[in-house]
Design a binder for these strands. Structure first.
Lengths: 106, 106
DNA sequence: AAAATGATTAACCATTTAGTTATCTATAAA
DNA sequence: TTTATAGATAACTAAATGGTTAATCATTTT
């Protein structure tokens, strides 16, 4: 049986949990952006964005390509799809267990 | 348009993100437990469990009934179902946006 | 070649988080 | 009724988080 509370899920949840990281994801749905372009509307410094970017990249939600001195950040659709599929599996698992639970206790 | 990164989702994610809280949820899938019974296998003090319980209760994932001096903790199936439904909505949203994104960029 | 720009890294600081032990309250057992 | 037990709360500490500014590196512009 899979461990349903493993690091990968925690990472995905943790990555999304911070408002600045949510802001980054939301912004990138509109299209690519550089670090500076992400920083400006979120009212934080570039180093702050840089750190959040690393977390989101490690969680497999973002990627970047370096164009000269600019880093163009974008959503990583394939890996995002994977993550969402992953969550979907867990959702199913939870619902099944909840059904059991409901039968047993109510 | 709904704000898809709102407090409720962050709370649900945050609540699940900590290993001890994951451990509590996993344990309660096996059935009810007291604070002490939760604490023992997780190798932390009762006050530590007490704090995590509060977070999980506020996130609507657990409830307890007081039986004498014991607190019987259990999953809160209805509210869990709500939370999962909530996540399901978001999953759908994300997939739709991802499809748009894929069409636009690939 | 020098200056300016985009981003990372380093060093630092404040806040939050998560744990502990000690104390207190309520219930159960002696 | 005294003692023991379950749990909450308080006070404290250590570690993690998230931010800043300053320094550095690479690229672009002048």
């Amino acid at each position: 049986m899979v461990n349903h509370f493993d690091r990968q899920l925690n990472l995905a949840f943790g990555a999304r949990a911070h408002p600045i990281r949510c802001g980054i994801l939301a912004r990138l749905f509109e299209g690519e952006a550089s670090i500076a372009e992400l920083a400006r509307p979120l009212r934080v410094s570039a180093p702050a964005i840089s750190k959040h970017m690393r977390i989101l990249e490690e969680a497999g939600r973002l990627s970047r390509k370096t164009e000269g001195r600019e880093h163009r950040c974008r959503l990583e659709p394939k890996r995002m799809k994977d993550a969402e599929g992953w969550i979907e599996q867990h959702r199913t698992f939870w619902n099944e267990r909840l059904d059991e639970y409901l039968k047993a206790f109510q």
